[in-house]
Amino acid sequence: MTKRKNVTASLTLESARTKHDNWSGFLSISPWLIGFILLILGPMIASLYLSFTDYNLLSSPNWVGLENYRNLFSDARFLKSLEVTFKFVFISVPLKLIFALALAMLFNTGRKGSSFFSAVYYIPSIIGGSVAIAVVWKQLFGRQGAITQILSALNITDTNLIGNPNTALFVLILLVIWQFGSPMIIFLAGLRQVPAELYEAASVDGASKIRQFFSITLPMLTPVIFFNLVMQTISGFMTFTQSYLITGGGPLDETLFYAVYLYETAFEYLRMGYASAMAWVLLIVIAAITFLFFLTSKYWVFYQSEGGR
């Protein structure tokens, strides 16, 4: 009898405690939670609503239903910005990852000073998204910039690479690739996780370095590659600063990134509703692509902990 009583008592106590624990949990995360609700969730809901309206910021929004979304797909500049952004992402992300991996391999050899240099090579990523670097880049590749001068002295080309519609995008891609620091650091951490005995066994079996790379390093790194690929693709789609500051989307809209066109629509042309619709379409595009990556991941990503499944 007493025993049973005890059990019920401890049960109530238990549930009371869980309740308490939840509250203290919510309380501890409340600084983040409040920030999330006020700064992210609220604006997101507002923008979803605005995407169905005609809103010029200066007077109150008018409900227009799906019109903004319908208009998007007959807007030549919108389609152009999609094209440019896809081109940018699909060229810059793989190149950046290859570059980051190559340097991570180099610094993983444990040679003297490799940690110093990996820190040095990380610097561009810290400052690379900044306004200052964009301005420097503009100067370097501009009409009288150092790189333009060198290229023309070497008789390679004497055009201003930023002003030329065929090359402007590649100047921006180059800038983004140069900011390979954060994937490099992650690759470096990944490389250090690869068990040394695998390489030892492979060398005993007489596998060449190249064979070791493709049969050990690469498969063991696939989770890290996957992570980097997803993160870089997402940030690639949202690239703004480089284009806005260096080319302003030009020449001939050849560097009109999605985010730049969105900004132009919202804050220069005051079409907030249309811009909100664009933002949601971008969210859907990014979500779809990320989802695709996850779908394919089971065919190429190797998780050691799952015994290679």
Partner: peptide
């Protein structure tokens, strides 16, 4: 002058 030259002066 071509457009890019003109713009490079303005931006500069």
């Amino acid at each position: 002058p071509s457009h890019d030259i003109m713009m490079s002066y303005i931006e500069g």
